[in-house]
Amino acid sequence: MSLWEYANPVKFIRTTDRVLPWISWMAVICLAVGLIWGFFFTPDDFRQGSTVKIIYLHVPSALMAINAWLMMLVASLIWIVRRHHVSALAARAAAPVGVVMTLIALATGAIWGQPMWGTWWVWDPRLTSFLILFLFYLGYIALWEAIENDDTAADLTSILCLVGSVFALLSRYAVNFWNQGLHQGASLSLDKEENVADVFYFPLLVSIAGFVLLFVALVFLRTQTEIRARRARALMARERAA
């Protein structure tokens, strides 16, 4: 029994079919609990008032925007090294989800920033990094769409993902250097001293869990769709050939 067994498309679909309902329901429950708890049962911040509550969307989506790219990077590496098709398709499936997460993070950031900083957009390093990440996602998706041969597309996008990751990291540091920014420090860290207060912390954790589960569910679902589309095309090709 090895992890690589799930690289078989049929096995992947069978397994994810079994776990997908569970993950989906847990995502719904976590999101509902986290968001309702966060929005209605936490006190207003003494400085930021009720606007602070957008944190329950902003922080999880921002986390997932980055983690989706990391997941694509790992999946791309697996494709390059072991050439498992499911891996390449999972990377492809994750990209649009990552784009949406990035957009949510940017939009909620703007909405949060308006009352706090008095403007919808500032060229703050964190916001700017996310904008750059958004561009990287767009390029990656556009390259997938542009190439006809599936294996070639997987090869090229994997290399783009690798190179892009290096440059995305460089951009992050470059942007930090370029503008010190208004953004507050990380909302969460392992070092408990710096964290937001407990009342905000626990609902935030729940809603992060909800976002993670939602991401996993969406990626599973989209990967299944990609696999089925590929299978349909393969079958049609066989029909034509026969």
Partner: peptide
């Protein structure tokens, strides 16, 4: 002999 393309094989 007619058979699946390399990139399709895993999906049949």
């Amino acid at each position: 002999r007619p058979r699946a393309a390399l990139q399709d094989e895993a999906f049949l």
